[in-house]
């Protein structure tokens, strides 16, 4: 069982990101995934949470996630909040949308494994959103699937096509770019 918590803002596609992961895991045939939005009234710009619970076996646990294996920060501004690592397992992973140097980020979460994904840059390169509010969810999903080996490219591509309501080709390009960067990084690390 792998449990991921997403921290984003209303309108950023945080819940869609969790849904893309669920679709990608199903399409890859590697198991199943529940994508769980934090339950409440959604407002544009307000912090939102979503969860993904992934397992090779049928998933029976239907509560929220309190001790995630990974947290994903769609908005780098959350880096200042201690809430983002609340309950994170000791060997848990922090995946953050950021272009800051590795050392700067590592200093922010001492002792944690931190991976920076330049999702904002990738999103803007592909014309997703505006500099003030880039749409980073698909780039994040690309990176996440590669980092955690959740799905192969065809499974992820199909997931994005099914889950993204507009600008499908540009979203696919952003997903692919992030997926390939981090697949190469994962290979190099092995």
């Amino acid at each position: 069982m792998l449990e991921i918590r997403f921290h984003g803002r209303g309108g950023q596609g945080t819940v869609v990101a969790a849904k893309i992961i669920a679709e990608a895991v199903l399409n890859s045939g590697r198991g199943q995934c529940l994508a769980i939005p934090e339950f409440g009234v959604e407002r544009r710009g307000a912090p939102v949470l979503a969860y993904a619970r992934i397992s090779e076996k049928p998933i029976r646990v239907r509560s929220r996630i309190y001790e995630p294996d990974a947290v994903v920060l769609l908005d780098p501004a959350f880096a200042a909040s201690p809430a983002v690592t609340a309950g994170l397992k000791p060997d848990g992973l922090v995946i953050v949308n950021s272009e800051l140097p590795r050392e700067t980020l590592a200093a922010r979460w001492p002792g944690r494994r931190v991976i920076a994904v330049p999702a904002r840059r990738i999103a803007l390169t592909h014309g997703l959103g505006t500099p003030a509010s880039p749409l980073v969810n698909t780039a994040i999903c690309g990176a996440l699937c590669a980092i955690l080996s959740l799905a192969d490219w065809p499974a992820l591509e199909q997931a994005v096509r099914e889950a993204v309501p507009a600008a499908v080709e540009r979203n696919l390009a952003a997903t692919r770019e992030a997926f390939e960067v981090f697949r190469e990084a994962a290979r190099a690390a092995r």
């Binding site: 669920a22 199903l26 199943q32 995934c33 529940l34 994508a35 939005p37 339950f39 239907r62």
Partner: peptide
């Protein structure tokens, strides 16, 4: 169940 089932995505 509201949200727990109504809003959770699953296969």
């Amino acid at each position: 169940d509201g949200f727990t089932l109504s809003h959770t995505y699953e296969p």
